[in-house]
Nucleic acid binder design. Structure first.
Lengths: 213, 213
DNA sequence: CCTATTGTAAACTACTTAGTTTAGTTCCAG
DNA sequence: CTGGAACTAAACTAAGTAGTTTACAATAGG
């Protein structure tokens, strides 16, 4: 009776998922047809339906996997020998690179579109993506190394502000198809300005050892 | 031969648009059926098709109107006797209130979802919404009153940063259905923190009259 | 009052959809 | 070589889709 039991079986499973991912990302849930998925997957419809009870379960399975993949994205990479400021820049750049990637864009778009139809999907996307990322950044901000340079009260809030400053105009532009691949220079500028604003607020003031509200 | 000529006619036009808006916002483009729109509009399908040549034109017309409505949202209201800092708070609060509204959320969601299928739609949503808002904020930041207190080089970038700091986690949470109506206190906190960070970067330093790079 | 316009409901066309079934094929273990 | 499992293409069902047409009703202007 557990939810998983209905899904999965033999050896063409991955192939089906791959085709489904491609079509769902391209067309959304309503726009995708099962015939197209089967064709794209190089698999017969009967096979597809031997793996998944229906279109919805297939859709959910695809996006569950995308969420897992997304949660494994690491914006922090353990790069030794970087100052906190440099590290902040690296974090920002990785974050931007991620949401500019085809993967990031497609998953984001589909999840926004179908969050109403599949409520648990929106939740799990949010948690494996933005929330997960913000928490990783917050952990870094709480580290001794960071705290030596930064004076932060609410690390999660600060992490979120940094992430938001990175996303900037770009996330919206990309989401609405206004600009699809910004130049490296443009990205560097945004990163630079984001970190500048972040440090203006959170850089520890030289003198006083205590924290100011 | 001009694009407009195909659409519009008599007196039930608004009714059709209203029904179409309701259904499209609820279901998206593919998910919405013309029968449902006609039913929801309290109009026969034949009447609907006497106003619009097809589903796509109807969809575009609805969203064109939403974009116009969106572009008329004013985040600045001319409120006299407010300090620049207070004004920034008001701007932030209005911005948040807007994207938390049903209207803001629905339009945003549908536009993201259909930006691939209807490229010009994404563009015009972006321009009438986020871009338009940022430009209004930038105009304020460039005003003498604001410049007396703030030291800003690139007003549009600063405006965008302020807007992003406002959106914070909230926009994403709302978009993915994680949190639908945050408390007033929560909003106030975000506004407060956004303005704090913004001012930390852009508040004119007491002493020097010139601007620093 | 009469007629043209604008509306209506409902049937209809031609097509697509999700999902099932059938009859036959490939593949591999024993 | 055999038997069973997994797979296939293709036909099929039942329902829904966009868009058209038909035959009829309400409403207004002159």
């Amino acid at each position: 009776m557990n939810a998983e039991t209905q899904i999965k079986k033999g050896r063409k499973y991955d192939q089906v998922i791959a085709g489904a991912r491609a079509v769902f990302m391209r067309e959304g849930f309503e726009g995708a047809s099962v015939d197209e998925i089967a064709r794209d997957a190089g698999v017969s419809k009967a096979t597809l339906y031997s793996y998944f009870p229906d279109k919805q379960h297939l859709f959910m399975e695809v996006l569950k996997q995308e969420c897992v993949a997304q949660s494994e994205v690491d914006v922090l990479f353990q790069q030794p020998g970087l100052s906190v400021e440099e590290k902040l820049c690296v974090i920002c750049k990785n974050l931007i690179t991620f949401f500019l990637s085809d993967f990031g864009q497609e998953v984001f778009r589909v999840c926004v579109a179908e969050a109403t139809r599949f409520p648990e999907l929106g939740q799990s996307f949010y948690e494996s993506g933005p929330k997960n990322l913000a928490e990783k950044i917050a952990d870094f901000l709480r580290s001794d190394k960071a705290q030596a340079v930064l004076d932060i009260d609410d690390a999660y809030l600060a992490a979120d502000q940094l992430a938001q400053l990175c996303r900037s105009d770009l996330l919206l532009k990309v989401l609405f198809g206004v600009q699809t691949n910004p130049s490296e220079a443009e990205i560097d500028r945004i990163v630079d300005e984001a970190v500048k604003t972040f440090l203006a607020r959170y850089r520890r003031v030289a003198r006083a050892a205590g924290q100011s509200g």
